[in-house]
Deep mutational scan, measured.
Amino acid sequence: VTLFVALYDYEARTEDDLSFHKGSKFQILNSSEGDWWEARSLTTGETGYIPSNYVAPV
C-alpha cells in the first residue's frame, strides 16, 4: 500500500472532494483520473477526491 501525506491544507469545493489538513495521510484508491485522485483518509476513514499536487509519498 502506497501512503501519501498532505503538503498543504485543502478545503473541499464539491461533495465528492475531501477536506484535509497538512500532515494528513491517505491511501490512494485510484490515481488514473489525472490530477484528482480517489483516496481514503487514514485520519477520518472518509473516501473522496484529492488534488494530487497537494500530496507526496510518505
Score class of each variant (00 low, 15 high):
F4C: 07
V5N: 02
S52N: 06
E11H: 11
P51E: 02
D35S: 09
K25I: 15
S52Y: 08
Y49P: 02
V58G: 05
Y54H: 08
D16R: 15
I50W: 02
R40N: 06
E38V: 15
G23W: 05
Y49F: 13
T14I: 06
E38L: 15
A39Y: 02
K25Y: 15
K22M: 08
P51W: 07
V55D: 01
F20Q: 00
S32T: 12
T2D: 11
A6T: 02
Q27V: 15
E46Y: 07
I28A: 02
Q27T: 10
K22E: 07
F4S: 02
I28Y: 02
S24F: 11
T14D: 11
R13L: 11
G45A: 04
A6W: 01
P57Y: 06
R13F: 08
L29V: 08
A12Y: 02
V58R: 02
S52T: 06
R13I: 11
T2F: 11
S41H: 12
L7H: 02
I28C: 04
N30H: 08
W36D: 04
T43N: 10
S19G: 07
F20A: 01
A56W: 09
T2K: 12
L3N: 05
S19A: 07
L7V: 07
N30Y: 07
I28V: 10
S31V: 11
N30Q: 08
Y8V: 06
A56C: 10
L7T: 04
S41A: 09
A12M: 04
Y8K: 08
A12P: 04
R40V: 14
P57D: 05
W37T: 02
Y49E: 03
D16P: 05
S31G: 09
T14G: 15
E46W: 06
P57V: 08
T2I: 13
Y10V: 01
Q27P: 00
N53C: 10
D35L: 12
Y8H: 08
R40W: 10
K22C: 08
T47F: 08
D17L: 10
F20H: 00
G48W: 03
Y49I: 09
F20I: 03
Y49H: 07
L42W: 08
S41P: 02
L29H: 05
V55Y: 01
Y54I: 06
W36R: 14
F4Y: 15
V55E: 01
W37D: 01
Y54K: 06
I28L: 06
D17H: 15
W36T: 06
S32R: 10
D17T: 15
Y10K: 01
R40C: 10
S32E: 11
A56P: 01
V1Q: 13
G34R: 12
K25C: 14
D16Y: 15
P57G: 05
G34K: 14
Y8C: 14
F26N: 00
V58L: 13
A12R: 08
S31M: 15
L18V: 06
S32A: 12
S41K: 11
Y10E: 00
S19W: 03
V1E: 13
D35M: 11
Y8T: 05
S24K: 03
V1K: 11
V58T: 07
Y49G: 03
F20R: 00
E38N: 07
Y49S: 06
F4V: 11
W36Y: 12
D17A: 15
D16T: 14
N30G: 10
H21I: 13
K25G: 05
T43G: 08
G45E: 05
F20C: 03
E33R: 15
Y49A: 05
A39T: 01
W36M: 13
S52W: 08
V1M: 13
